[in-house]
């Protein structure tokens, strides 16, 4: 079951998200450009945001993604996790990602 984008869910370390199908995207260098054809918006993501976005496959939890982020970036696990949860909430609010409910 998928919680549709548009709300502001209480995301946590175990939350799993996936990219919404209506969003076209491309990684350019280390950054990403997203085009949401439903909301007529173009989004530019910096390097860490692009890493997180690319990892939203609906299977990995935010905690797992944050942990892999610590291997790529000079950041500690706690900071990576809190930043990842905050940014994931932004993506859901923008309608670019949706929460995959367990079960």
């Amino acid at each position: 079951m998928v919680k549709k984008a548009g709300g502001a869910p209480g995301l946590g370390p175990l939350s799993r998200l996936r990219r919404v199908e209506g969003v076209a995207w491309r990684v350019i260098g280390e950054e990403a450009v997203l085009v949401n054809v439903r909301s007529d918006e173009v989004m530019h993501l910096n390097s860490a945001a692009s890493f997180l976005w690319s990892s939203l496959d609906g299977r990995a939890s935010l905690e797992e993604i944050a942990l892999s982020m610590t291997g790529q970036y000079d950041v500690d696990a706690d900071t990576a996790l809190s930043d990842s949860v905050a940014f994931a909430s932004e993506l859901v609010e923008q309608g670019a990602a949706e929460v995959v409910e367990p079960g």
Partner: peptide, 20 residues
Amino acid sequence: DDSGDRKAYEKPQMSVMRIN
């Protein structure tokens, strides 16, 4: 310095532009 080959970290951020 134990950062090894890891990249400099910047908090994940996005900028949003509305399509005309």
